[in-house]
Amino acid sequence: MDLLLPPGLTHRPLTLADAPAVLAAITAEEVADLGESSMTLDDVEADWLRPSYDIATSTVGVFDDDGLVAYADLSAPTVAYTAVLPDHQGRGIGTALAAWVQDRARAAGWARVGTQVPEGSAADRLMHHLGYELLWTAWDLELPPEHELVARPLPDSLTIEDACPEDFEAAWDLLEDAFLEWSERDRLPLDDFGARIWARPGYEPWNLRLVRDADGGLLGATHVHLSGGADGDTSAYVAKLAVRPDHRGRGLAPAMLVDAFSLARAHGATRSHLSTDTRAGARGLYERVGMVVASTWVNRSIRL
């Protein structure tokens, strides 16, 4: 499909070498909408390096001469990501990318496609104008740097420790089982799942923590990673946290969260974040640990 772009702009599929330019576009848009961005190059590359992902057929970049000004990425069934540099917004580029995304998603047999954007942003307003419906609301929460972390002990006989490679498949099972309780998507293949955790650039064993019972059974898992901000701060992001259904309500999740943030601070983190949404129903848990809402996002989708 050819993109209906303003005169002088060109487009092509992206390559891994374009990841820094894509990060720059995402960051510029988020800074304009939110005042800051938490995206990192590792986030972009980990997604693109999934074994099942084909960057050549899943992406398009829009260029002004040699400079990338916008992009679109069909990341997974029903999910696409886009960004347009703020000084190029209002020129019809976002509308052209939306048409490209819908055409590619329709050709792939998807019933709908959408994305998550900051509430009230230019992208949110455009998607609403184009007929994208609101599916759910999400929040980024931050643990204030001055907040004192108070250890939450686990119940007797339970332990928490770093994951070993032999644990990866069991952690995948537990985390995917938990997230698929409320997420309408297919189960991620083990290798794709691992590309975002243990194969993520910079992974260290403490990034994946596991709760076990006295017999070694896996009851919970937490994935936390670090990223360096443009201001020199190091941020911790809890990307995944889940407890086996038959052990919920025992205080495991707060203990796991405090463990993750404490370890991150010990490894240099000055800020701590995570994201949740209305489907998970976990916002209250995070606020009880001391976290506060830093930004609000909306997930919009359109039927094809």
Rank of each mutant, 00 (worst) to 15 (best):
P144A: 01
V292W: 02
H11M: 12
Y71E: 03
V62W: 06
P189E: 09
P155S: 10
A242D: 11
A46L: 03
R185I: 12
M127E: 11
E148P: 04
L126D: 08
H223S: 14
A32Y: 00
E146R: 09
E161G: 00
A99I: 00
R288V: 01
D246V: 06
M127Q: 11
F261P: 03
L34Q: 07
E166W: 02
A221P: 15
L180P: 06
A282E: 15
K240M: 13
V238K: 02
S272H: 05
L226H: 11
R283V: 13
L23M: 03
L16W: 01
S37A: 03
L158R: 09
F179P: 03
L149G: 05
H247R: 13
L210C: 15
D233V: 10
W136K: 12
D2F: 00
T27G: 00
A123K: 01
A32M: 01
F168M: 10
G194H: 09
A260C: 13
V224G: 05
S75V: 12
I93V: 12
P145F: 08
I160R: 08
T270E: 12
W206H: 14
D66Q: 11
A123M: 01
G220K: 09
L49E: 04
A230T: 14
L49K: 07
A260M: 08
D73F: 15
A280S: 15
A151R: 11
T115V: 01
V258H: 10
V79I: 13
L241P: 03
D277S: 11
L5Y: 04
L174Q: 08
Q89H: 00
L34I: 10
R283A: 13
H11L: 02
P13N: 04
A46W: 01
A46K: 02
L154P: 09
L175E: 15
A25M: 02
I160D: 06
D177Q: 07
L188S: 15
L97K: 01
V211S: 04
L158M: 14
F63C: 07
I197G: 08
V289P: 03
G281R: 05
R271M: 13
G94D: 12
A221Q: 12
R283E: 13
G35D: 05
I302V: 15
F179W: 13
M39W: 05
E133V: 04
G228S: 10
S38W: 04
D213A: 14
D233R: 14
A163V: 14
D140W: 01
L4A: 02
L16N: 00
L188G: 09
P165I: 05
V293F: 12
D124T: 01
T95V: 10
R212F: 13
E148N: 05
G67L: 10
P6H: 01
V69R: 13
P254R: 09
W139S: 00
R279M: 14
A178W: 02
